[in-house]
Every structure is written in structure tokens, then in C-alpha cells.
């Protein structure tokens, strides 16, 4: 288990002391947005994540890669406590966002999920109009304000998701009439509307064609200026293209976490190397 970027030797047992990144984006990487320590996750008696420790930095894109069932999605979903809705789910260890333990008793889970947005593998727009999809989160969080304010927020979110020009003339049409790629960008707009500061993306492009995928990837690149993005992907090229940091999961454990170029060119672990070179997975 490891925690820190640019640490030359990854140790599997003891958490490593904080190391300073030596190159690039030094300031950003000194800050820690999400700080997870010794987190384990259980579905009933089954342990799905084992002693994960990781520090995720603000305004960078962090990719989680690994073969199916390795726990990368489960881990992503512990970061906005989405796993709480699964009966029998249990978490050990701590996960802090901006220094606050999100699993501490009395934490406002609803507020947490508003600050930590999520985009799912399969686009899941509500069966409502395009406008109402984006407005939904604003309405339920009491952020709708006046009609003009609401319309302004919706437009802003759709612009951020690079969707505005395509839909501005048909905001009242059903979201389900859009293409798959548009629906996924709508889901991103919907997540951005409530102004989260972290955006979790669970294989957001896995159901899309290459062109729609490219648009999502460009979007991720643009969004990292304003958001901390964590993206789960089974597509290694995608991780290489969009992310600054990459974490490799295997069998519920975090095997290696480092700068993306390092993971893909000079991984410290044999397992990582085998995976990124396509020897398994």
C-alpha cells in the first residue's frame, strides 16, 4: 500500500512518509484533496478493498486502472459514500476530504455527495427534459434561486460540459432523445451544476464510440482546471491520455500509485508492468 506520488520505492507494508514531488506541478501536488488511510471495504463478510492508502491532489486528474473486479470502482464509490446504499456494506479506516473524515459519525452524507459529484458508467439521465435534468440537483439542494438564476446555472453547466451549443435550442426536449455521448455529457453537466469540487467518474466513456469518447476526454482535460477529477477506466490508453496520476488496483489492493508517465513507462512493481504491457487483465 502506498500513498504518495513520486515516491521512488513503493513499499507494500508501511505507509511511506510524505515525499516531495521533484518535477512539474509542484505546488498542486503538495496539496492533498483526498487523503485515504488504511481503508478497507466489506460487502457483508467479503472484503473487497484491503488497506488502501492514497493521497489525491487537487486540480489533477487521477486515474484508477486495473482488471475487472479489482476494486477500483468500489474504491471510487467509497469517496462519496455511494456504497452506503448497498445493504451490508461496511468501511474501515479513514477517508478525509479537505481534512474532514467523511466516515466520521454525524457527517452530512447528502452534503458530501453534493460536494463530490459522480458520473456513472452508463449514462443515467432522468426521464425529463434536458433543462430539468441539469436543474434537478439545484432544485433538491435549494440552489435553484430565481428563474433567471436557475436558467443561468443550467446554461453555465451545459457550457462547461461542452454541450450548450448542441442543445440550446431544444432544452425542453427529453434527455432520452439525445445520443449516448450527449447523454453522458448531460450527466456531467448535471453533476457540475451543483458546484462540486471533486468529480468522480466511473468509466464514463466505456459505453461510447471513439468520437464521443474523445469528446469526454477533452472535457476531462478542460475540467481539471476547476475540479479535482478521479476517473476509473479499464482503458489504459485513456488513462495515459487524460490523467496526471495513475493508481493501479489488483484484487482489492492498491499496487502502485505514481505519476502517469512513470506508471506506463517505468513502473516500480512487476504486477503493474505486466498489466500495463497487457500481459494480463
Amino acid at each position: 500500500m502506498t500513498g504518495q506520488i513520486a515516491n521512488p520505492s513503493i513499499r507494500l507494508k508501511a505507509p511511506t512518509p510524505t515525499a516531495r514531488p521533484t518535477e512539474g506541478a509542484a505546488n498542486r501536488e503538495r496539496d492533498v484533496k483526498i487523503d485515504v488511510e488504511h481503508l478497507s471495504f466489506f460487502y457483508g463478510a467479503k472484503r473487497a478493498l484491503e488497506d488502501i492508502s492514497v493521497k489525491i491532489h487537487p486540480n489533477v486528474v487521477t486515474a484508477f486502472i486495473g482488471p475487472s473486479g479489482c476494486g477500483k470502482s468500489t474504491f471510487l464509490r467509497t469517496l462519496n459514500r455511494m456504497n452506503d446504499i448497498i445493504p451490508g456494506a461496511r468501511v474501515e479506516g479513514t477517508a478525509r476530504i479537505d481534512g474532514n473524515d467523511i466516515y466520521a459519525p454525524g457527517v452530512d452524507v447528502v452534503g458530501l455527495r453534493r460536494r463530490v459529484g459522480m458520473v456513472f458508467q452508463k449514462s443515467n439521465p432522468f426521464p425529463k427534459s434536458i433543462f430539468e435534468n441539469v436543474a434537478y440537483g439545484l432544485r433538491i439542494n435549494g440552489m435553484a434561486g430565481s428563474k433567471a438564476e436557475l436558467a443561468g446555472r443550467v446554461e453555465e453547466s451545459l457550457r462547461q460540459a461542452a454541450l450548450w451549443d448542441e442543445v440550446k435550442d431544444r432544452l425542453q426536449e427529453s434527455a432520452l432523445a439525445m445520443s449516448g455521448g450527449q447523454q453522458q455529457r448531460l450527466c456531467i453537466a448535471r453533476a457540475l451544476a451543483v458546484r462540486p469540487d471533486i468529480l468522480l467518474m466511473d468509466e464514463p466513456a466505456s459505453a461510447l464510440d471513439p468520437i464521443a469518447t474523445q469528446r469526454i476526454e477533452e472535457l476531462v482535460y478542460d475540467l481539471k482546471k476547476a475540479y479535482t477529477i478521479v476517473i476509473v477506466t479499464h482503458n489504459m490508453q485513456q488513462a495515459a491520455r487524460v490523467s496526471d496520476h495513475t493508481a493501479f488496483f489488483w484484487l482489492g489492493r492498491l499496487i502502485e500509485y505514481d505519476r502517469t508517465d512513470k506508471i506506463f513507462t517505468a513502473p516500480a512493481e512487476k504486477l503493474t508492468e505486466d498489466y500495463v504491457t497487457g500481459r494480463f487483465g
Partner: peptide, 26 residues
Amino acid sequence: VPLAQREAAYALGATQFEAIRAAIFY
């Protein structure tokens, strides 16, 4: 109603009541 609909609501900060309302609407 797909779980994804409820998750979509929860992920936007819905309470359980609001998520159920989303499911009923669906």
C-alpha cells in the same frame, strides 16, 4: 426502476425521500 436512477439522484445530494421520488417519477 434501474438502480442507476436512484444512484443518479443520490449522487446529486438527494435524500432518501428525494431518491424515491425520482424512482416513482421514472
